[in-house]
Amino acid sequence: MMSGLSGPMAANRPQLDRIRGVEGLNAELCFSCRKCSAGCPVADDMDLAPHQLVRLAVAGPEGEALRSSGIWLCTSCQTCTTRCPNGVDVAGVIDALKQRAVASGVKPRDGRMLAFHRAFLDDVKARGRVHEMSLTARYALRARRVPEGILLGIGMFQKGKLPLIPPKKTATRELRRLFERGKGK
């Protein structure tokens, strides 16, 4: 069984110090067969492919993996994790690399997806539920760019797909506590 996901213990997994040896990720079992990269939908768009990221996570230099734009392109589709013959949770390793890059303040070569994830969590924290229009505005501010899909967004708005008025705020005080609890660990 692979899975960094089983067992209540894992819920208390701290922000990772080292990816090598983290229970459930099994990164050190990789023998570089590249099956993960072969099935990855975005491997061609990545500067470092999934099997290379696993290798760097295990053997270093880890900084190379943390700066990579590849980790931020991962769609978390779980194909790699599902197919790895050695039970390496490849998508989990990539998540761990992202979390580590953020925790240690490493700037990715391409900051767009990080800006998007941050904007997304900002919206969750502020409202409890994500409002697509606010999310897009937050992303534009965080990424300091006009979102590429803005014309499409206008078309979707005209179709009535994007509500202008945000939903009522939900449980925001409680969520703030959850967000703060996660900080600094």
């Binding site: 994500v130 939900t170 996660g182």
Partner: peptide
């Protein structure tokens, strides 16, 4: 009172959150 599941932003940035 359901709230957002965190989607991929959550597990990308903060496992515990």
């Amino acid at each position: 009172n359901w709230t957002c599941c965190g989607a991929s932003a959550g597990h990308s940035l903060d496992q515990e959150l």
